Simulated scan of single mutants.
Amino acid sequence: MRSRNSDEKLERREAILDAAEEAFIQQRFDKTSMNSIAQSAGLSRALLYVYFRDKEDIHLGLCARAADSLHQRMSHYTEKCTSGFSAMAAIGEAYLDFYYNERDYFRIITLASGLGNVKHDTVKEMTPSQQAYIAAEKRIMALMASCVQRGIEDKSVDTNVITDPMKTAMYMRGSLHGLIMLQDAGGSSLFDSEGMDRKTWLIQCKALISRAMAPHKN
């Protein structure tokens, strides 16, 4: 049973993350200062450092939130799938749904790849934010890999090409995330100059990824 003091610390930590989330969305990460986060949270700047190492550490706390939300969507989309292939296709649906409905969280996760924060080798050296984010990312990849493994076992995917569940899950994740980034607001201007509908293009790309993993008929 947690103590009242522990609950208060957790509530304060969550309040800081709430304030940071709003600030990052409104002002962008690079323009948000620890002072502005402290003011929004109603705390002193010094107290922020009791809970978080720096601004990047706060960002990783938000990444953990975003990754948890993505994992929940993936779990929901895949729970009733009847084959590994259909579960893998559902992962793509969940990823697009996450982007369209939680676009700020998608961008928060995207920014994490460029910060170089999660680089410690031992849990002992990590901050709570780093630990939470890594744990959430592992849950996402484990779920994706389990869908691939299911497809290999029920032969609903091309087992001549797909043999390693985790490598395939990484291919799926990288492809989906990269394609979404390409057409995002700050992405390629070709979509506008060529008159391409971004949503239709993403649906077509997702279909191509799925088709590449399906068994080939002779």
Rank of each mutant, 00 (worst) to 15 (best):
M88Q: 03
E93R: 13
S36Y: 02
Y100C: 09
L176T: 07
E194H: 06
C81M: 15
A64H: 00
A185P: 01
E194F: 13
T168N: 05
Q39R: 09
R28T: 15
F98K: 03
I162H: 05
L182K: 03
L62Q: 06
M34P: 03
V148I: 12
Y77D: 13
T32L: 00
A66K: 01
D192S: 11
T163W: 05
Q27L: 11
L62A: 02
D97E: 13
R139N: 12
T127I: 01
T122Q: 07
A15E: 07
M196N: 00
E11H: 06
V118F: 04
W201M: 03
Q149W: 02
E14W: 01
I91W: 11
L96H: 11
T159K: 00
T163Q: 14
Q149F: 02
K9T: 06
R107E: 13
R65T: 05
N218D: 14
L43S: 05
D57R: 04
H216W: 08
V123L: 15
A145C: 07
A90H: 10
M166I: 02
F52K: 11
K119G: 08
E102A: 11
D7E: 14
F85P: 00
M141C: 05
G178A: 08
S33D: 01
S113T: 09
K9D: 14
F98Y: 14
A135H: 10
T122F: 14
A23N: 04
A145P: 03
D154V: 09
Q26E: 09
L47E: 14
R13H: 07
Q149V: 00
R198E: 04
Q72V: 13
A90L: 12
A132M: 06
K155M: 10
L10C: 07
G187V: 00
K138W: 10
S129M: 01
S210Q: 09
R173I: 11
E125T: 01
K124C: 05
Y171W: 12
L62F: 01
L208G: 06
S3I: 09
S33C: 04
A67C: 09
E56K: 10
Q183H: 06
G116D: 07
H76N: 15
E125N: 05
F29S: 02
L96T: 11
L179K: 06
M213D: 00
N35R: 12
L202E: 00
Q183G: 04
N101Q: 13
P128R: 04
R198W: 10
E11A: 15
A94E: 08
G186A: 12
L208V: 11
S33V: 07
S188A: 04
L182S: 06
S113E: 12
Y77W: 14
K9N: 14
H177I: 14
A66L: 01
D164V: 00
R107N: 10
D97I: 05
R45C: 01
K217I: 05
C205A: 15
E21W: 02
F98L: 07
N218E: 14
K80L: 10
A64S: 07
D154L: 12
G84P: 06
T159W: 06
S40R: 10
I108T: 15
R4E: 15
F52S: 08
N101G: 14
A142N: 12
C81E: 15
Q130M: 09
H216I: 10
A94L: 11
T82W: 08
M170K: 03
